[in-house]
Amino acid sequence: MKLYNIAHSRAGDKGDIVNLSLIPYQEEDYEFLRRHVTEYKVKEHLQDIVKGDVIRYDIPSFKAFNFVCQQSLLGGVTTSLALDTHGKSLSFALLEMEI
């Protein structure tokens, strides 16, 4: 199953860092995601995109996660040669992950 089936995500940028939220549609899936969508797995899944570390922040109060991915925007929004300089589409790269 793809992550896309049970969760949604939004990407945000700052410098060369992209943050990807991960939010289960059903709040009861929060635990399942916490166990299966680890920093290591995300880093491996996004290996073509994320060149630095991935840190996951857990927010149990509103049942969401935030993945902060370093060195992900080919040098940063302002001078990047990428088509999607902000990495706005990368939320859907995370949701491609098989779990």
């Binding site: 949604h8 995500s9 939004r10 945000g12 700052k14 943050n19 939010i23 969401a64 935030n66 902060v68």
Partner: peptide, 17 residues
Amino acid sequence: NLQTVKEQLLYEVHDPA
């Protein structure tokens, strides 16, 4: 709804705390 608010709460955020 809950989804739009949660997505925006974490938009361009690093450590939420």
